[in-house]
Design a protein around this nucleic acid. Sequence first.
DNA 1: GTCTATAGTCCGATAGAC
DNA 2: GTCTATCGGACTATAGAC
Lengths: 210, 210
Amino acid sequence: MTDTPRPSKRNEIRAQNETLILQAAEKVFAEAGFGGATMQLIADVAGLPKANLHYYFATKEELYRRVVQNIFEIWLHAADSMDGADDPAEGIGAYIEAKMEISRRHPNGSKVWASEVMHGAPVIQDYLETTLRDWTRGRAALIQRWIDEGKMAPVDPEHLLYMLWATTQHYADFGHQIETLNGGRPLDDLQWQAAKDSVKSMILRGIGAA
Amino acid sequence: MTDTPRPSKRNEIRAQNETLILQAAEKVFAEAGFGGATMQLIADVAGLPKANLHYYFATKEELYRRVVQNIFEIWLHAADSMDGADDPAEGIGAYIEAKMEISRRHPNGSKVWASEVMHGAPVIQDYLETTLRDWTRGRAALIQRWIDEGKMAPVDPEHLLYMLWATTQHYADFGHQIETLNGGRPLDDLQWQAAKDSVKSMILRGIGAA
DNA sequence: GTCTATAGTCCGATAGAC
DNA sequence: GTCTATCGGACTATAGAC
């Protein structure tokens, strides 16, 4: 047995290289899709020989799975902003803010997730049926509580959640279209602020919480 | 010259086979992405030998381009419902109705479009810069007119359009996720009606037109 | 842990008979 | 216009030297 379970130098190297490869993979999977992405291109972006990828991730699919899991984790944490609040204007406003910020900072992760779901979630179906389903039920219950307390209009909680996901992720997934309609330039700081304000005001007014 | 420009039997056969192939291609491209789709699978779904596909569409990319153009045409026509109206509740309400119906009837076309845009619109970038840009400017001007006439709240017209696209197309592009959260069953007639009503009421209230 | 060379597979496209 | 057989190229994954 030559294993060293404690954080050794070997483990540090592994962690560093895994992160490097995962970042390159997220970019390439987002731009080319799973089928269009090649291990060679991911290796080039990461600045490593192709064989090293297979040393850290046995198959292309395993690498892809890790990329999808990453963005999912980030989104789950964004919900923390919603849970602490005790009225919808604050809670949903903060959730929109957090999701919009993720769309800006992690557009590639969002695209990989969208692509995975669009193709029938072949790799993360179990996540949808367990973690996401539980998450959704919990947040729908929270929204229903706000409705029962008269703090917002009696909207269908699930369709409100779909609207929140759709509108915020649109700025990542369809960022290229938005950029084209913006004269070929990405949204600048002011425009991102305007986007956040627009989404927040329209939705909060739409659910009677403005 | 042996060409027969009039609608001959030869042209009918061509039109029939092209439609058959395009329907199969839309399904396969939606489910597997451009890179993941194979000409062999499209041929199998269409019930034709693979070589016939290349007889009607020279390359995989040409076939793909036609599929993308088809859904774009359908969406453009959906805007007619918006133009005839003289107030936002009617015009935008009808547009939501039309877009939701397309998400239900043509989910695969919507997915192919989403995938194309997410990957940087390598094939239909010119459409984004010409047709879509003109379309967007025209509808933004119409919305601004309604705002100036005091018929709705002073929202940013572009971000309203993004919200309309995002929310309606979400029911097609993320249909698999919605189905999973719905207990593994697709939305039935009543649930689709509830979805339409939810989206319409939240957005119309959100822009002060309810 | 790193890298080169290559095995083995699959796909897009075409040739050519019917 | 239809179909079978196949070419040529690209890709994932691995073997094996360092």
